[in-house]
Nucleic acid binder design. Structure first.
Ligand code: SF4
Ligand code: SF4
Lengths: 144, 144
DNA sequence: CTAATTGAGATAAAATTTGTCTTATATTTT
DNA sequence: AAAATATAAGACAAATTTTATCTCAATTAG
C-alpha cells in the first residue's frame, strides 16, 4: 500500500523540470542530482515517461528531455500510473471478472469507494502545483 | 499501490467469522473454503492475526480460532496493517527522517494529506459492517 | 573522423508476495 | 494408555516486483 520509489523520483523529476523555463531541455544527470536520486535509475524512469508521451527525448550530445504536455495538465495520478502501472486498490475495483466472489462479496463496495476517493485525490494535483512552490494543504476535504 | 491478497483473505475470513454466533470456534479449513481462499495460506494469515491479539487460537482437535475483540471494534485499517504492515503511502509520511529532502520538498505535504484521507477511510469501516450484510456505499464523502 | 555526452535497453540483485509442506499439539477413539 | 485424527504453528520455497546498475547505441561538437 504505497507508491514506489520510482514514482516518487518521477514526480519530483518532473517538478524540477517544470521549474525551468518552458521548453528547456533537461538532462537526466542534472535532474537526478537536483532530486537526490540515482541517475541510472532516473534514466530508466524518464525512458518510461518518454514512451508514454508525457515528455519528449532527444538523444546524443546536447540531448535530453522536454515536456510534451503542459505541467498543469499532468496529474500525479497520471505519473504514478505510468511508472507503477494502474492504481488498483484491490483486483475487483477495475475488473469485476478478476474475482469470482464479486457477486456476493460484502467488502467489494468498500474498495470501490476508497478507490474512487484515492484516484480523485491523486487527480486533483498537477505537476505545476508543486513547481509554483506552493506549500501546505491543497486538499481541504482531507483534513476538513 | 494496492492491498495484498493476504489482506483481502484476512478481511473476508474475519467477516465470515463475524457472521457466526458470537464466541463460536472457527476452523481455518472452514474459513478458507467459505471465502474461496487457499487453506494453507489462510492458516498462516490467521497465525499472524492471532499473534497480533485480534483473534485467539486453540491448538489440537476441536481447536480453531475465536474473536479476541468485538467485530465492531476491528477496523479494516487494523487488519491491513497487521497483515501488510503499516500503511505508508510514501516513506516521508510517518517518518520525516526517512527522507533527507523532506525539508525542501514541495510534494511532501500532498502525501501527508492523501495518507490522512486514506487511513481515515480505512478506519471508518469495521468487520461488523460487512458481517451484517449491509451493502452499498458506506463512505458518502467518497462519491459525494 | 574522433571524442564526448546523452538516452536506450539488457541485465541483475534485493525485497516482497504468495503460497506449500512438514512439524508440533491437543483431543478422541480404541 | 496407545493410536489415530484433527487442528494450528512454523519452516521452506517459488514467483513476482522493486530497485537499481552496467553496457550499448545514437548524436553532435570540434
Ligand atoms: S473484495 Fe471481494 S470482490 Fe473484491 S477481490 Fe476481495 S473477494 Fe473479490
Ligand atoms: S515526497 Fe518529498 S519528502 Fe516525501 S519521500 Fe519523496 S522526496 Fe522525500
Amino acid at each position: 500500500m504505497n507508491i514506489s520509489r520510482a514514482s516518487d523520483y518521477a514526480i519530483r523529476g518532473l517538478v524540477y523540470m517544470a521549474k525551468k523555463p518552458a521548453g528547456a531541455v533537461c538532462f537526466v544527470k542534472d535532474i537526478a542530482k537536483n532530486t537526490n536520486s540515482p541517475a541510472s535509475f532516473m534514466s530508466k524512469i524518464f525512458q518510461t515517461l518518454a514512451k508514454s508521451g508525457l515528455v519528449h527525448s532527444f538523444i546524443g550530445t546536447k540531448g535530453g528531455f522536454t515536456f510534451n504536455a503542459r505541467p498543469e495538465d499532468i496529474t500525479i495520478k497520471m505519473v504514478v500510473e505510468i511508472i507503477d502501472g494502474p492504481i488498483v486498490l484491490n483486483r475487483c475495483v477495475v475488473n469485476k471478472s478478476s474475482c469470482r466472489n464479486v457477486g456476493n462479496c460484502d467488502v467489494h463496495f468498500m474498495w470501490l469507494d476508497i478507490q474512487k476517493m484515492l484516484t480523485k485525490a491523486l487527480s486533483s494535483y498537477s505537476i505545476a502545483d508543486f513547481a509554483a512552490d506552493k506549500k501546505g494543504n491543497m486538499l481541504p476535504e482531507a483534513v476538513q
